[in-house]
Amino acid sequence: MSQSSPSVQTGLRITRALGHARYALAANPVTLCAVLLFMFVLGCAIFGPMLAPYDPLQTNGAMALKAPSWQHWFGTDQLGRDVFSRVLVAARLDLTIAFSAVIIAFIIGSTMGAVAGFFGGWSDLAVSRVCDTIMAFPLFVLAMGIVAAAGNSVINIVYATALINIPFYARMARAEVNVRRNAGFVHAARLAGNSEWRLLAVHIFPNTLPPMMVQVSLNLGWAILNAAGLSFIGLGVRPPDAEWGIMVAEGANFIVSGEWWMALFPGAALMLAVFSFNLLGDGLRDLVDPQKRT
């Protein structure tokens, strides 16, 4: 067993993981649902603009604030725009924000964490201090401050959301790498003449990916909520772009006057997307860390 090359080992691990995945999905209908739901949300993001029955930006004075009907499934907003089309189209922007923010956070955070965990010393100290500093902020307020200071744009929401997520990845990567840096297979690889950086990048880092993916999935949902919260206080996506958070925020003012559909449908879409990410993250965790389940 100790003779087998890393690639064979990885291959074995993948087969085993797939088998486990099939077993886990079959045993756990909720995770199956989550996967389907995730596919659905992803489908909306990819095909939404093609499927939308109306132009999401086209106003229509005669049709303002109409309740849901066969013509407008989710009703229309204060400018007569079709809420259903807007909810559908918004999926792409929301997922783009969430994915880009989380990917940036993942890349930066995991690199920082891996380096800190592997080399220790001053790099560890520096990374830990940076993480401590970020984590000591009230995170939502920090994001608010960044967007307010850097300007009101989608790209700044992405940066702000990425920044507040970095410590989670950095800490996780640090811990995972730290545990493995003195493992047998690492010693073996070192003796085989691999450089330290190569050890880290090829032999250790891939092993930390499964738990990190769980974090990614959970963070996606949080990233969307974060962007929505920023929209709610007026920082965020610019009109007339459709985005779930801003639609809820705007629709919120119309709930009391009885036009509940403006906030409810984008709110439900938002919840559905976050829900699917969270369930998926949960499911992934079961796969990755089977001992958490009995």
Binding site: P29, A228, F232, M271, N278, L279
Partner: peptide, 29 residues
């Protein structure tokens, strides 16, 4: 893994999926 477990999981996940300002407004309404 019983239905109780799954129901709990669904419930708490649904809770954490709701934007707080939306929940708040809905409750007030």
């Amino acid at each position: 893994d019983s239905w109780v477990d799954q129901a709990c999981r669904l419930l708490v996940t649904a809770g954490v999926s709701l934007p707080t300002f939306f929940t708040g407004l809905l409750l007030v309404y």
